[in-house]
């Protein structure tokens, strides 16, 4: 956690990667922010955890591979990534095979994390 008082931003993703343009817009915002030395931390809740599915394959459809974009986050200095533990087990995601290192949290811990930031951005 980055702690409050430093204009810390937590981006909260609650939607699946391809069901809407939200995931893409949120990722763009995170990358742009980090490119300007304003790194953000990320939290994936509910369907948002589906963005971490490691077996995404965009070969058949020529659209941007969201998982690959996610994998570039550490290069931008974004390395605090949290996920909704319940949703991960609900969708049977294998986080060990995931695209980037994450920390799984139960609801109470997620709430505690959220109130530690100055701003929440929901995507």
């Amino acid at each position: 956690m980055r702690g409050s008082g430093k204009n810390a931003v937590l981006m909260v993703f609650t939607h699946s990667p391809y069901g809407s343009s939200l995931a893409g817009a949120g990722l763009d915002a995170a990358l742009a922010s980090a490119a300007f030395e304003q790194p953000v931390d990320l939290l994936f809740i509910g369907d948002g955890v589906l963005q971490l599915q490691s077996k995404q394959d965009n070969q058949a459809l020529k659209i941007k591979h969201m998982g690959k974009v996610l994998a570039s986050l550490p290069l931008y200095g974004i390395d605090r990534v949290y996920v909704d533990a319940k949703a991960v087990s609900r969708y049977q995601l294998d986080l060990d095979a995931s695209l980037l290192a994450t920390e799984a949290l139960e609801p109470d811990k997620m709430h505690k994390l959220m109130v530690d930031y100055d701003h929440l951005l929901s995507f």
């Binding site: 809740i45 369907d47 909704d84 997620m110 709430h111 929440l120």
Partner: peptide
């Protein structure tokens, strides 16, 4: 302290996600 806004029907995943994160 978080102000939650819910703009999705009660049968949505958003409702469930929100519900699990409501604190005093």
């Amino acid at each position: 302290m978080i102000l939650h806004t819910l703009n999705a029907s009660p049968s949505s995943a958003a409702f469930q996600d929100c519900l699990s994160l409501l604190h005093a």
